[in-house]
């Protein structure tokens, strides 16, 4: 895994934080760079395992998934669904603007 073995630097952390929608302070990002660097160094031992012809296991399956019947049934009421919203307006969740001219 030659690409992955490159050293983790601050720019990686800043990029990943953006992907994860985490606003980190510069100080936090620097500390995370060091901490994650140490963890990834340990993780690199996986590169010593021969995984040729090994199928991946994303989940341990014991038989087929058990679906319930696809039929309509009562769920949360509109009121219950909105009850814990930090901000609501017009019977919906209110958020800061994210398009030009929004509010």
């Amino acid at each position: 895994m030659p690409v992955a073995l490159m050293k983790l630097d601050l720019s990686h952390i800043e990029h990943v934080a953006k992907l994860a929608s985490l606003s980190l302070t510069r100080e936090e990002a620097e500390a995370m760079t060091a901490e994650l660097g140490a963890i990834l160094k340990h993780v690199e031992e996986l590169s010593s395992v021969d995984t040729s012809n090994v199928t991946p296991t994303s989940s341990v399956q014991l038989g087929p998934a058990a679906w319930r019947r696809d039929e309509e049934r009562p769920g949360l009421s509109h009121e219950e669904a909105l009850a814990q919203a930090p901000r609501q307006a017009d019977g919906g969740f209110a958020v800061p603007g994210f398009v030009e001219g929004g509010s």
């Binding site: 996986l46 995984t51 199928t55 991946p56 296991t57």
Partner: peptide
């Protein structure tokens, strides 16, 4: 290199 390989080692 990371996630894909970890799933195989899990096997």
């Amino acid at each position: 290199a990371y996630y894909g390989r970890a799933l195989k080692v899990r096997t």
